[in-house]
Amino acid sequence: MTDAAHNERWIRWLNTVQLVIAGAVIMAPTVWMVLSSFKPSFEVTAYPPTVIFAPTLENYVELTRTTPFLSYALNSLIVTVGSTALGLLFGIPAAFAVSWTRITWPAILTLAARMAPGTLFLLPWYVMFRQVGMIGSYTALILSHAVITLPIVIWVLLPSFDAIPRSVFEAAQVDGCSVTRILWRIAMPLVASGIAVSAILAFVFSWNYFLFALVLSNGDTKTLIAAAFNFIGEGSTQWGALMAAATLIALPPLLLAALVQRWLVSGLTLGAVKG
């Protein structure tokens, strides 16, 4: 074996070692969370911590028995699906119009809203929604979460619409097609995969969002994320149930993200990076 080939193999091996270390650091906490959720209650707090144990579903049963976990989950689903639908309904035509006319200020305004701290909006919303008696309503929650989903939809779709050759639309216009018809019949089918990616990202970020529901929901409309406090409880007595709750809350976004992992980074940077 030549020196160069020897060097090459050595470098490859070193790189694999680094990759394994990075992977272990990234995965270990999540694996620990899932393991803990299946531990019998006396073993969750065992010290030194145990790795081998007889798995049980007792924490999950306990969680659904002692907390209204399922109704929180239903609230999360209503708010997330509602705000994603609203984001798509407003965002798809807006992205198309911005791409066509090059009038970009509506898109930039939604991006600015995404950069501002959420509390900036939550203060006036709280005053406004309280005046009309909408605190605790699904409507208020869906409207507030649409502020998260709308910029995602617009900025993920903008490059997709931009990529369609102008001549396609111009030909349709010559044939007497209205703008709405061009969007519905020609543009939207062409960017269908972009719409799917934007919908999934909007869903994930709306599901994960914490701040707004903390103030705008009440006992009946509380989302899973906002209810996380209820699961933390006092001290270490409920760790098993806490980790079961954490695992279940993280499951929908993780499964959906795995579906779109290939397009995820360019989508997440809202057009700043092509990945």
Binding site: I26, M27, T30, W207, N208, I249, P253, L254, A257
Partner: peptide, 12 residues
């Protein structure tokens, strides 16, 4: 696996 940390809710 690499994207799983930042796609889970920060609260989790």
């Amino acid at each position: 696996l690499f994207i799983s940390p930042f796609m889970m809710p920060p609260v989790v």
